[in-house]
């Protein structure tokens, strides 16, 4: 395989991986935008989504799409429940307390899952037969096409909700200024619940897609992608939805290129190096605006 072929191949792999990061990053960035909380449990929500999808397919013998939808709905509800139980009582608490709580929730999800399904990785059934398509210089398989399609549909749906529905406008209002939004009669708690629901559903979709793509899920699978997704969100500009999507894709591509051309052991380092560079040179992210503290 020539170096260019390899490059194009890694590009496709990178976009697939990046789509997964983007879906997780969207939830991260929405929650951060609305609550200023780094929800460390978000990666574990993605893991739960993967398992729900897994059980739908293996035990209930559902096809991919219904499994995906069920996983999104159930995991979305879990997200709402977590917010209601763990984060809402801390609405006026110091930021660090909420952060620690998020770490607590993360451990809770990981090890409760481990308690019930054992730490052993599960092999996701091979539901789509491998078909490779040659499009110009690219070789794309049908799983990757499915990932792209579902990611694009979900992003379009999210854009529609945020931009054109009343709830979406309320979300933007709460994210811009929670107090002012409340004074305008917006029920901030309801909006925050909704945000968690949507974000968790997107993460669940990512979990199911990853299961199909890599064929394997385990209770700790959410830790690294969760962190990477946060890096993606910071890269794009935390709180900015298109930023999270772009950040996810960029990160995916960089990681694929690093593992393809340098060494896969440096994959994770690349992601964090990007993070550090962004923070040092443009802490507000690629799409963010600069703000100064007034003295």
């Amino acid at each position: 395989m020539g170096i260019m072929d390899q490059f194009f191949q890694q590009l496709i792999n990178g976009i697939s991986l990046g789509s997964i990061y983007a879906l997780i990053a969207l939830g991260y960035t929405m929650v951060y935008g609305i609550m200023k909380l780094i929800n460390f449990a978000h990666g574990d929500i993605y893991m739960v989504g993967g398992y729900v999808g897994f059980f739908c397919i293996t035990i209930m013998h559902l096809p991919v799409l219904p499994a995906l939808v069920i996983s999104m709905v159930l995991t979305g509800l879990l997200g709402i429940l977590i917010e209601r139980i763990a984060y809402r009582p801390l609405r006026s608490a110091p930021r660090l307390s909420v952060l620690i709580t998020a770490i607590g929730v993360s451990f809770f999800l990981e090890y409760t899952m481990m308690y019930f399904v054992t730490p052993q990785p599960r092999t996701f059934p091979h539901i789509l037969s491998d078909v490779a398509y040659h499009i110009g210089p690219f070789v794309v398989n049908n799983q990757q096409i499915m990932i792209f399609a579902i990611t694009i549909i979900l992003m379009a749906l999210l854009t529609y909700i945020v931009q054109f529905t009343k709830t979406g406008k309320a979300m933007r209002a709460v994210s811009f200024d929670t107090e002012a939004a409340q004074l305008m009669g917006i029920n901030a708690n309801r909006i925050i619940s909704f945000t968690f629901g949507i974000g968790s559903a997107l993460a669940a979709a990512a979990g199911v897609l990853v299961g199909i793509y890599y064929n394997s899920i385990d209770p700790l699978m959410g830790i690294m992608p969760g962190l990477k997704a946060f890096v993606a969100a910071v890269l794009g500009g935390i709180g900015i939805l298109p930023g999270a999507a772009a950040g996810g894709i960029i990160l995916g591509i960089v990681e694929a290129l690093v593992s393809g051309f340098i060494s896969s052991t440096f994959r994770d380092a690349a992601a964090f190096a990007i993070l550090i560079l962004v923070l040092l040179f443009k802490p507000t992210g690629l799409l963010g605006k600069n703000t100064n503290e007034k003295v």
């Binding site: 763990a86 110091p94 607590g104 809770f108 090890y111 481990m114 308690y115 730490p119």
Partner: peptide
Amino acid sequence: PELRMIIYAVILILLMFYRP
């Protein structure tokens, strides 16, 4: 090990609720 982490997580969350 698993139970340990679950207990740990619950203690952590409760601590933040009642004694942040």
